[in-house]
């Protein structure tokens, strides 16, 4: 299958946004979307290569989710086109996933919604995101943070070439946020998959990203996080808040387990990923 062709991700050493030689997994070229005569997106270009984390930031109503829907093939663009590598396998973590209590669903069953996998494979995927203790829990009983871990594990179980995460830290508290972004970085390092993330928050996500695309209907600016935060368009878009936000590559000497307990990091992580 196609997944064999991807550049093997050895110990991921270089994820700078300049290293974009690989064929993109997915690329939007001049994508415009008009809904009910209202322009939502205008001429957006964007590509995600294997092993790269691309984050789309922008204010509410900027068209971030619409862009994701176009990239995933859920919404046809009014103009422009989307190229996906043939046979591309996508793992998707949608925004605002809620479960109807009338449908009984355990985490184990949710995990195998679109793939057939053995229970041990399900457990392994859950362990990768720190959610293995939740396997028999009904999905309706999950907290916000637990749900995102489970959904991330579910996407990983598909062994995706491309992870698409729409607001992955929703409903997650602040420490959990940084933790979740770190986890996404770790997954990229380990699996070499491309990651497309959507976020409206700025500073934590910047540290975990190779390439930032700042949109407000059109692409305002794009580049490595350090460049983007200095860009005038970015500052005008996010106002005074942006000025206060420095790119924030940082190290932790400990992390938090799924129950919030402190887990020491041994050995400490390699160099920070920020620009």
């Amino acid at each position: 299958m196609f997944r064999r062709d991807r550049p093997t991700a050895g110990p991921a050493t270089d994820h700078t946004s300049e290293d974009r030689t690989a064929v993109p997994l997915i690329a939007a070229a001049g994508v415009s979307v008009v809904l009910d005569a209202r322009p939502i997106l205008d001429g957006v270009d964007l590509g995600v290569s294997p092993g790269h984390i691309v984050t789309v930031v922008g204010p509410n109503g900027a068209g971030k989710t619409t862009l994701v829907r176009v990239l995933l093939g859920l919404l046809p663009p009014s103009a422009g086109h989307v190229n996906r590598r043939p046979g591309l396998r996508v793992g998707y973590l949608p925004q605002r996933l809620s479960f109807d209590p009338v449908l009984p669903l355990t985490v184990a069953r949710l995990m195998t919604l679109t793939v057939r996998r053995s229970r041990s494979a399900v457990l392994a995927a859950l362990a990768e995101t720190g959610g293995d203790h939740l396997i028999t829990t009904p999905v309706q009983a999950l907290s916000g943070g637990e749900l995102q871990r489970v959904l991330l594990a579910r996407a990983l179980l598909r062994e995706p070439d491309l992870l698409v995460l729409d607001e992955p830290v929703q409903g997650v508290d602040f420490t959990g946020e940084a933790e979740l972004y770190r986890l996404i970085g770790t997954i990229r390092d380990r699996r070499g998959c491309g990651v497309l993330m959507v976020s409206h928050d700025l500073h934590v996500v910047m540290a975990a990203t190779d390439h930032v695309v700042c949109i407000n209907r059109h692409v305002c600016c794009a580049g490595a996080p350090a460049q983007v935060t200095r860009h005038p368009a970015y500052r005008s878009l996010f106002g005074a808040r942006a000025a206060a936000v420095a790119v924030y590559p940082h190290h932790h000497d400990h992390t938090h387990g799924p129950g919030g307990e402190v887990v020491p990091l041994n050995p400490p992580p390699a160099a920070g990923t920020g620009g």
């Binding site: 203790h133 829990t137 907290s143 508290d173 959990g176 129950g259 919030g260 307990e261």
Partner: peptide
């Protein structure tokens, strides 16, 4: 809620 260890952080939950 299956959080056996610490009490859940206040913001978490739905």
């Amino acid at each position: 809620r299956s959080v056996p260890h610490a009490p859940a952080p206040p913001k978490e939950g739905q």
